[in-house]
Amino acid sequence: MKLLTCPINGPRPLEEFAYGGEIREMPDPQTCSDSAWADYVFHRDGAPGPKREWWYHVPSGTWLVAERDTASDVVSRTYLLGEA
């Protein structure tokens, strides 16, 4: 069982967390093209490598950012959004 470090609660077992997907920049819906929007909504980059991901510590309701290499499954850093 993997450990993940919650910025508020410290290292906790993975079963306390929910995965929230990769953090992706939303294009400006007012100005972006239809295809750019569709790409944002439907396409995910599944290629293994370093990602910034949303994780949620369920018992405390904490959203956090994890920098994780999905090829090696090594989490290099976790922090609250905006505290990068």
């Binding site: 929910a18 929230g20 949303w54 949620y56 309701g61 959203w63 959004l81 905006g82």
Partner: peptide, 8 residues
């Protein structure tokens, strides 16, 4: 959960 994430 989703509302708190969007708030951030």
């Amino acid at each position: 959960r989703e509302m708190t994430r969007r708030l951030q």
